[in-house]
Simulated assay, not measured.
Amino acid sequence: MSTAPPAAPGPVRRPAYRSLNGIWYVLPSLVVLAVAVVAPILMSAYYSLTDYSLLREPGWVGLQNYATLMTDGGFQRALWQTAVYTLISVPTQTVLALVVAAVVARRTRNRFGAFVRSALFIPVIASMVIVGSVWRYLLGTDDGVVNALLGVIGIDPVNWLGRPTTALLVVALVTVWKNLGYFLVIYYAGMLDIPEDLYEASSLDGAGPVRQFAAITVPSIRPVTLLVVILGTIWSFQVFDLVYTMTGGGPGRATVTLVLAIYGAGFQSMQMGYASAMAMVLFAIVLVVSLVQRYLLRGK
């Protein structure tokens, strides 16, 4: 007499209250996120559709603020100058961080290399306001250290922050100086994951350091480079405190960036609705860049 095999056990069903336990662990963070991030975004989206001012109650104007942005020369100039600032700072800091990280990773994997990484990381932890104030003093026309050094070799003093042709460039280069250490550490961590066998095999084939850098290092850390570019782009479009401290948007509004324009419209002209429309444009730009990052880095 044959007996039927025992039935396979079905899936274990956990009580509903156990499935909800995890929510309690993340609930405090979700509340903080909702209050500090989500709510301000939704409020800005609402106020961008009104004529809200700090002096009166908001009145509904629909898309009028966005239509005004399309013809506002000041906003378009600020957007253009932010793009120029980004095009100067992001490629420069990416290339410099890559080259310096390659040198440190290949030549100084010792205490000296650790000292170099630590020294280059000091500007990263410094406040933007402090960095801007220090560099504003160093670049002073009459008593600045930079012009004093140029005077030693016979070059006349340059009004670095008082000329429209140099002010934005100088601010972008100061940004590169501050961010270099952060991206250096990211590149350095990525280069440590590259197998040493690749370099040894290429050395046997006669490849020198430059060839190894171009054929092995750069392709191997391509996802890291993409991450550095995306982060640098987002940070550049959000720049405010460094520009505000060094130039205040001058000379002649030559260094007014997008966030500085939002600040001026909201807290100087009291046009909070119009400033919110600018902020939503900035939010859209950062969101697009972030989505591009997620798409390009998927699976990596």
Rank of each mutant, 00 (worst) to 15 (best):
V158F: 05
N159W: 02
N159L: 13
N159I: 07
W160T: 10
W160C: 10
W160H: 09
L161W: 02
L161Q: 03
G162C: 10
G162M: 07
G162E: 05
R163T: 09
R163E: 15
R163A: 13
P164L: 04
P164A: 03
P164F: 00
T165E: 15
T165A: 13
T165N: 13
T166E: 07
T166P: 10
T166C: 09
T166G: 08
T166W: 00
T166Y: 00
A167I: 04
A167R: 05
A167W: 06
L168Q: 05
L169W: 10
V170H: 01
V170Y: 01
V170W: 04
A172L: 10
L173K: 07
V174M: 07
V174N: 01
T175C: 00
V176D: 02
V176T: 07
W177V: 10
N179C: 00
N179G: 01
N179A: 07
L180Y: 05
L180P: 04
L180D: 03
L180W: 07
L180C: 04
G181S: 10
F183P: 02
L184C: 03
L184N: 03
I186G: 07
I186N: 08
I186W: 08
I186H: 11
Y187L: 06
Y187S: 05
Y187F: 15
Y187C: 08
G190L: 05
G190R: 03
G190A: 13
G190V: 06
G190E: 05
M191Y: 06
M191W: 07
L192H: 08
L192N: 12
L192R: 11
L192T: 14
L192A: 14
D193T: 15
D193W: 00
I194D: 09
I194K: 11
P195C: 09
E196P: 04
D197N: 14
D197F: 02
L198I: 00
L198H: 14
E200H: 12
E200Y: 05
E200L: 09
A201C: 08
A201H: 13
S202N: 08
S203E: 15
S203G: 11
S203C: 02
L204S: 01
L204D: 01
D205N: 12
D205I: 13
G206W: 12
G206I: 11
A207W: 12
A207D: 11
A207Y: 12
A207E: 13
G208H: 09
G208W: 04
P209L: 05
P209K: 08
P209V: 06
V210D: 04
V210I: 12
Q212I: 02
F213V: 09
A215L: 13
A215V: 02
A215W: 12
I216R: 09
I216P: 06
V218I: 15
P219L: 09
P219I: 00
P219E: 13
P219W: 01
P219D: 11
S220P: 07
S220D: 08
S220M: 12
I221N: 04
R222P: 01
P223Q: 11
T225I: 14
T225K: 05
L226D: 01
L226C: 05
L227K: 04
V228Y: 03
V229M: 13
V229Q: 04
V229I: 15
I230Y: 00
I230P: 00
L231D: 05
L231A: 05
L231H: 07
L231K: 03
G232N: 05
T233N: 03
T233D: 04
